[in-house]
């Protein structure tokens, strides 16, 4: 595969697959791999942005099209499928989030469907899209948005903000302040309470983002390594055996990843709802 087509070095092959297509927002130029501006903040990972928005649009468009013609008496097959997803999400939210709020369920649905679609790009063979883009003159393309830590943090920090909105909305400023200072050790240990609370709250978005990122990044890396094995197909008998093993591994890992991507999307959704539920829940006073 691409390993034979210009990237003779396996290291650079892997690195190439893990490099984003970066746009420097200050000069509006595409950056090359060794440009020092890569590390700056005002850089956009164009591939992540484009693919995540594209997948989000697919989700929004399909669901909107079904929702617009949603029919109680004669549902189409597509509507049935969509309703299954919606009902699944709604049941989860009902179980985890006991308060009345019209935002949480649609939010959970968006997270589940969108994260699932972003993860699904993982199943697409690793060389197809980057190679096609290479032929079109695009130097780098990382097609799985959820292997970009910016994307996962973008989601989890939004959830973090929502968590605080819920905290204030359901408990009020005073109630929330009281909870932060007095929970869990009572009012006399308020500095400890405050520190604990900060650690607890910061851990939530970080774990949320890193869990998704870590799983998908590792999964994608293994797909890249399997692709390297496949690249040895015409490299003597040993290479052919290696490639044969690679085929089996590719199939196995892809099937396993069907489970993983769904599970990760589900976990992200459920934890989001759990965090929002905890934010809405008033702690009992000690």
């Amino acid at each position: 595969m691409a390993a034979e087509e210009g990237h003779h070095d396996t290291g650079s092959y892997v690195l190439h697959h893990l490099t984003n297509l970066r746009l420097d927002l200050q000069s509006m130029t595409i950056l090359t791999a060794n440009d020092p501006r890569n590390a700056g903040f005002w850089v956009l990972n164009l591939d992540s942005c484009i693919f995540s928005v594209l997948l989000g649009l697919i989700f929004a468009f399909v669901f909107w099209k079904v929702a617009r013609k949603a029919n109680a008496a004669h549902p189409t097959q597509t509507q049935n499928a969509i309703e299954m997803v919606v009902e699944f999400v709604q049941n989860q939210v009902h179980e985890i989030f006991p308060h009345a709020n019209s935002l949480v369920a649609p939010l959970a649905l968006t997270i589940f469907a969108w994260v699932f679609l972003m993860n699904f790009m993982d199943i697409v063979p690793v060389d197809w899209l980057p190679h096609a883009a290479g032929l079109a003159g695009v130097p780098y393309l990382k097609v799985v948005p959820s292997t970009d830590v910016n994307i996962t943090f973008g989601l989890s920090l939004s959830v973090f903000v929502l968590m605080y909105i819920f905290n204030f909305k359901f408990k009020g400023v005073l109630g929330f302040g009281k909870e932060v200072l007095t929970h869990p050790f009572g009012p006399w240990l308020f500095p400890v309470n405050l520190v604990l609370r900060i650690v607890e709250d910061v851990a939530k978005p970080v774990s949320l983002a890193l869990r998704l990122f870590g799983n998908l990044f590792a999964g994608e890396l293994i797909f890249i390594l399997i692709a390297l094995m496949l690249g040895q197909a015409f490299n003597g008998i040993a290479g052919a055996i290696l490639a044969g093993g690679g085929v089996l591994l590719q199939i196995g890992w892809a099937i396993f990843h069907i489970l993983v991507i769904t599970l990760q999307a589900f976990v992200f959704m459920v934890l989001t709802v759990v965090y929002l539920g905890a934010a809405a829940e008033a702690h009992a006073d000690h």
């Binding site: 970066r22 927002l25 700056g40 903040f41 005002w42 850089v43 956009l44 990972n45 992540s48 942005c49 995540s52 928005v53 989000g56 989700f59 929004a60 669901f63 909107w64 929702a67 617009r68 919606v86 019209s102 935002l103 369920a105 649609p106 939010l107 649905l109 968006t110 969108w114 970009d148 830590v149 910016n150 994307i151 943090f153 973008g154 989601l155 920090l157 939004s158």
Partner: peptide, 24 residues
Amino acid sequence: LNATLIFQSIAFLLFVAFTWKYVW
């Protein structure tokens, strides 16, 4: 981390709002 984070957050909120209003 870079500006992608901000972009993604905005996109996320827009999609959530859309789902909230027109899909759910």
